[in-house]
């Protein structure tokens, strides 16, 4: 469980399990990632290669409702919060992709009454 790109990233998603149709719901996501900028040098003067998440997507019932392109200026362990309108019962699918083949996903069910 060292901070390499190969180990699966720890993800924390906070989304409501149930909502009324038409409710505005808040979704919070947190993912563990070092977000190495690619601009820093190590103690020997060598450039530390860039290692960041480049893309986040959230699909609700199959459709992308929120997406973000990340840049090197984003802090480690990126936290995102966004809102959507509860329309139908369906899965919320989250995906993070990035450098060195980084890819991690998470799924949560939203039941709309």
């Amino acid at each position: 469980m060292t901070e390499t790109a190969q180990t699966p990233a720890r993800v924390l998603v906070n989304a409501p399990k149930t909502a009324k149709r038409g409710d505005v719901i808040e979704i919070k996501t947190l993912v563990s990632h070092i977000m190495e900028t690619g601009f820093r040098h190590d103690t020997s003067g060598n450039l530390v290669p860039r290692n960041i998440i480049t893309r986040f997507e959230c699909r609700y019932d199959g459709a992308v409702i929120f997406a973000a392109d990340f840049s090197p200026a984003i802090a480690a362990n990126p936290f995102l919060t966004f809102f959507t309108v509860a329309t139908v019962s369906g899965p919320l699918e989250f995906s993070w992709t990035g450098d060195n083949g980084f890819a991690t996903t998470h799924q949560a069910m939203l039941t709309v009454a």
């Binding site: 720890r10 924390l12 919070k28 563990s32």
Partner: peptide, 12 residues
Amino acid sequence: DTINPATLWVLD
């Protein structure tokens, strides 16, 4: 806890 990034370490 769901915002606190330290939770990632606690879960590890």
